[in-house]
Write a protein that binds this DNA or RNA. Structure first.
Lengths: 263, 263
DNA sequence: CTGAAAGCGCTTACAG
DNA sequence: CTGAAAGCGCTTACAG
């Protein structure tokens, strides 16, 4: 029987199935498609979410961030999707309260100020900032600077920048280092142009922590892991296994040759 | 009435609507998500397709190319989508006959060998290759070389490479230029490494046509226009306005400062 | 033009 | 356990 069904190429009608079963096996993924984002990182997220979703027999409906809260409401309200994954979430993101009001569960990639009731996954940027400083402290540095992301990133309320800075400051305080943080443009030239300012503010500076996409080989965001984790959390929510939760991935420190004792 | 409906936040159930009306207002978009593609160009296509689809009140279901023909069959067979847009189509792409057998119309971004019955949009790469040579001929060059994409691109059967080469050769013959074509690795170093070989084969070479992503600022593929055009063609097919057709966008030549008369 | 009814193709709860 | 029936929430063709 199963076999003849396959032979005949029978495939259930998705709409009828959704109507009767009350689920669609489709996830919404909201991606920022403006030009100023880090395109390869976004692409990694999208790829990993689609691939992970397929491994759970789900498909992905792709929405752009510029549809805003109305877009979320639209696809959720018309029961096109069973759950939503939202990227590029800002600190005071207006979409968060909207998501809270939907019948479908949501997982944010990013960490808003008040995520109560909504699941979040993100890199632990506070720990990342902390770890960078700690590493320099262990190399004997006593005076460190943060080459941060550009002012626009802080202004947009992108919470990861603030969290990284908080971790940086915490560690500087804890290890009793002199420190200064500086917002820099996301180009090699912009980052380089920051250095004189940093030296002026903190003449004895010997160590730099860079949280700036262009100052380095792109900061290695574990986009693949985060995307897969977001899908896994969605699936657990759909199974009713647990309620909303926040999961922050611990950073891994990669020793390269940029670190040494101060001269 | 309309107003109270909006007030109450009524949104028709997408599954029920699809079942009764026999269409979903969803398009499938198949994107190549392997690492060796030009990520920003893919992203441009995806963005423009999603944005254009929304302007026609349609959503986009994102599939990865590695689901292959089975993925197309799956979403079409279960009536999840009304039509399909397929990127990264190769010359002898096995997905083309599968698409031909589906109930839903499809538009390819790219041009396979035998597109009979399926709509295609692409840049006119033959005209692009031709135009490059013509431009050099008009500047007085008599001996030109093609810095082509790497051998892997030709081997994969990516039809645009062959079409560009054909246009290059046609123009060289027509303008009676000496010419040579060379496959080069898609890095600045790779392209540079080709030059001695080219000079060895054609000592008097004075003009270069580059069809190699890394040799130049990325060749300016009009991804935005192509994506929007693909959606427009899909909509016309869905309205039954016409049958399958191929549309090749004419290249636009941008005069920069890389061209001069031969010394 | 208006409105009640049939039917789209499934799933699921229920009778046997 | 099996199978017929009801029902999911819409659209559309049809009767009035």
């Amino acid at each position: 029987m199963e076999e003849s069904i396959a032979q005949l190429g029978y495939r259930p009608h998705a709409g009828a199935r959704a109507l009767a079963s009350r689920h669609t096996n489709v996830l919404a993924l909201v991606a920022p498609l403006r030009r100023d984002v880090n395109v390869p990182v976004i692409m990694k997220f999208v790829t990993s979410v689609v691939t992970a979703a397929r491994s759970y027999d789900h498909d992905v409906l792709l929405l752009t961030k510029d549809e805003g809260a109305a877009g979320l409401d639209r696809v959720a309200g018309s029961a096109m999707v069973d759950a939503l994954i939202v990227m590029d979430v800002e600190a005071g993101d207006v979409r968060v309260p909207v998501l809270r009001g939907l019948r479908q569960p949501a997982v944010l990639i990013g960490l808003p100020d008040r995520p109560a009731g909504i699941s979040c996954v993100d890199l632990d940027f506070a720990a990342t900032g902390y770890t960078g400083v700690q590493h320099l402290a262990e190399h004997g540095h006593r005076s460190v600077a943060l080459v941060g992301p550009p002012p626009a990133v802080y202004q947009r309320g992108t919470s990861y920048a603030a969290r990284f800075l908080a971790g940086f400051n915490d560690a500087a305080a804890h290890f009793r280092l002199a420190s200064v943080a500086h917002a820099c443009e996301p180009t090699f030239e912009g980052a380089a142009a920051c250095l004189p300012d940093i030296r002026a503010e903190l003449p004895g500076v010997t160590g730099l922590v860079a949280h700036n996409e262009a100052a380095l080989a792109p900061l290695d965001i574990p986009a693949q892991d985060l995307g897969a984790l977001a899908v896994e959390m969605v699936m657990h929510l759909l199974e009713g296994r647990h309620g909303a939760q926040t999961r922050l991935l611990a950073p891994t420190l990669t020793e390269r040759d940029s670190c040494a004792a101060p001269r």
